[in-house]
Nucleic acid binder design. Structure first.
Lengths: 203, 203
DNA sequence: GTCTATATTAGGATAGAC
DNA sequence: GTCTATCCTAATATAGAC
């Protein structure tokens, strides 16, 4: 029974999160994490036996953030169009808070998909209920008939892509103007909602 | 004046492309590239002085593929909606041919944006003509009025995202069924066109 | 729990023979 | 141009004192 929560572990986790998110598993250095945490390498290995174990801890934490329980919004009793809008608002708010998450997740899932999959399985994350809700809305002609998987991919892609490709967008469209870029990303909430609502309007 | 084109360099480039695309700069190993090319490490350094120089060669080649001269399509005399459709068809065809390109480009531009930027500048790639054409179509009420940057991001995101997030889509929606996944990605051409055309329909 | 010092291996790069 | 052998540094990991 511990009264005083040791916070060295927290410092490590914070530092490791920063470094892994920015550099990825392959590019990250234990030395850099130790420096950022204000400790030395040996202590890192005392808390987490290896770089891989440390990475796994950070990774599963971040996947947990990146895949929130969207199902809860979808299972509310809002009309379908409002559900869609709420999902977009909620998810882009999340991305504005963690703008580096998309590039990190894309990088790591393409490097080594196994831990990613095992996490998804552990969380019992399933796309079936989402597809079912969309299909029902299509059957009732509330939204345009299409393969529901495409709609899911469209919505996530519209939300996520600008964050993943942020350096390119920054350089091509807003060179040297960080404020304009932030503004643009914030506008995505409204923009994606309009675009999707038009895109799913029944014929 | 060389009559017989030496093909060791080609073998190196092919091998390096494979390895870099799959593992990224940080994860790639010179040994693995040498093995795949059927030579040894020393010869790699004979042709390209360093890993970084080899990577730069591969990277700029791949960026060249990933950013084709879309401007030519946009400057044709097709009606605007057909231009948009042609861009989507052309780009998704490209992605079907190089499905690993999106994850690679996203990874590397988030790791070290400098070479990416310098390439873009060298190619005099500019988004301005694209924005102008879209803006004119909006002024003429041929497409819905919106910030043209958002439209560009929407279209690219809809095309690119499913390829970048391919491992996730594969696992969540088509586990163990590579054929269904390929089919799904091929369907994107039609799907993105329908979705975008609806999304840009004037009010 | 935290440190210094060190072991160990991996990986990029070079020397030099052929 | 291509190889074998080797160098050298960087990076993960451990030993052991405090």
């Amino acid at each position: 029974m511990e009264i005083k929560k040791d916070n060295t572990e927290e410092k490590i986790i914070d530092a490791a999160t920063d470094v892994f998110v920015q550099k990825g598993m392959d590019g990250a250095r234990m030395q850099e994490i130790a420096d950022l945490a204000g400790i030395n390498k040996a202590l890192l290995h005392y808390y987490f036996r290896s770089k891989e174990k440390l990475f796994d801890a950070i990774f599963s934490k971040l996947v947990g953030i990146a895949f929130p329980r969207i199902g809860q919004i979808l299972q509310s009793d809002l009309p379908i169009l409002e559900k869609v809008e709420t999902v977009i608002d909620t998810y882009i708010d999340l991305l504005l808070k963690y703008p580096f998450l998309p590039a990190f997740i894309i990088k790591e899932m393409n490097r080594n998909a196994t831990p990613f999959f095992s996490f998804i399985e552990k969380k019992e994350f399933s796309i079936q209920p989402i597809l079912k809700i969309l299909q029902e809305a299509m059957d009732q002609d509330l939204i345009r008939k299409m393969r529901p998987e495409h709609l899911v991919v469209n919505v996530i892609g519209l939300c996520v892509f600008p964050f993943a490709a942020r350096p390119m967008i920054s350089h091509v469209a807003f060179p040297g103007d960080d404020k304009a870029l932030s503004q643009f990303l914030a506008e995505r909430k409204q923009e994606v909602k309009s675009f999707v609502l038009k895109g799913i309007q029944p014929e």
